[in-house]
Simulated assay, not measured.
Amino acid sequence: MQLLASVLLPTYPDPPGPKIASNAVAVARWLRATLDVAMVNVDIPDVSNALSRFSLNLPAKIQEVEAASRQKGKTLLDAVAAEASRCNVTLTSQELKAQPALMGEEAAKEGRYFDLCVVGWTPNNEASQMTAEEVVFSSGRPTLIVPGDEDVGTLDHVVIAWDGSRVAARAVADAAPFLERASVISIITVTDEKVLPREDVGDRLARSLRARGLTTNVESIHVGDHPIGAALQEHALRIGGNLLVMGGWGHSRLRDIVLGGATEGILSDLRLPVLMSH
């Protein structure tokens, strides 16, 4: 069955970053997937009154902002299309629109029709970070968060952050296409962050993956006083990992104020591609 991936790109106020086109195509090529590009352009409701029309010409300003958003989307699409053609990746595209506060929600709704969601992340770009969070928690699909300003390269060393939880198990299952293509799989457990369900959770997962014909190694780490999200990424990079797989933890009704420590750390400071499932 053909794997379908969707890269979800908010265009307002700024897109995720200059590398998102090549990175999305690189992921699709690695997975031998069809790639759909969904531009989420801004749709600003006209709430102006007679005075604002007279003093600020608000409708014209709204049209100007929306036109700029669409142009950014076209530029992104052209870049993805050129890269997909170069790499022989089958590409489809569509244009969505949403109010500024609902762009992430619109992206998450569209992502439900694909096997994998890809979102870009760029420092100091609130739109890309909010979209990534919304897609992780609301799409119901595994979400690959990729840097918007760095090349991802080949995702052949997969690092699994494993604590034996439901969301971690979901993430491992969703990572199957990456695990099947990996040359190295490392399982890491954090022993001083919370109580684990059993002492050998990492070894137990390794046995399960080896029974499926996958080669794995297991490590335990201590984070000490370091934020767990940063510690997981730093360790993954230290051992040569280029994809981190983990569960995304957050209470659906309280997500705006309560996120799991590792999830919050990843979504606020991405250092390598992360596949996150909720």
Rank of each mutant, 00 (worst) to 15 (best):
I221G: 04
A230N: 13
K194P: 05
L209Q: 00
N217A: 13
H226S: 13
D156H: 12
R212Y: 00
I185S: 03
R181G: 09
V167K: 14
V184M: 12
M246L: 12
E219H: 13
P227T: 01
S220P: 01
I188K: 11
V152N: 02
L209P: 01
D200C: 02
T189V: 03
A182F: 02
F178C: 08
A236K: 03
R255D: 03
E150T: 11
R253E: 09
H222R: 14
L155W: 07
L205N: 01
D200M: 09
Q233L: 08
H235T: 11
D225F: 08
D163Y: 00
L155T: 08
S252D: 08
G153V: 14
A161M: 10
W249Q: 15
G240C: 10
R238T: 15
V223F: 09
E199T: 08
A168Q: 00
G153Y: 13
R212K: 10
V152M: 07
A169M: 12
R210L: 06
R181N: 13
N242W: 12
R204T: 13
A171E: 00
G153F: 13
L214T: 00
N217K: 14
I228M: 00
A231C: 01
R204I: 12
R255K: 15
G224T: 06
P177R: 12
S186R: 07
D151Q: 13
H222Y: 05
G213F: 00
L244Y: 06
R255M: 10
G241Y: 09
D203I: 12
A236W: 07
A161T: 04
R212Q: 06
Q233H: 11
R170N: 07
E199R: 11
R253D: 11
V159M: 11
G241I: 04
V245Y: 06
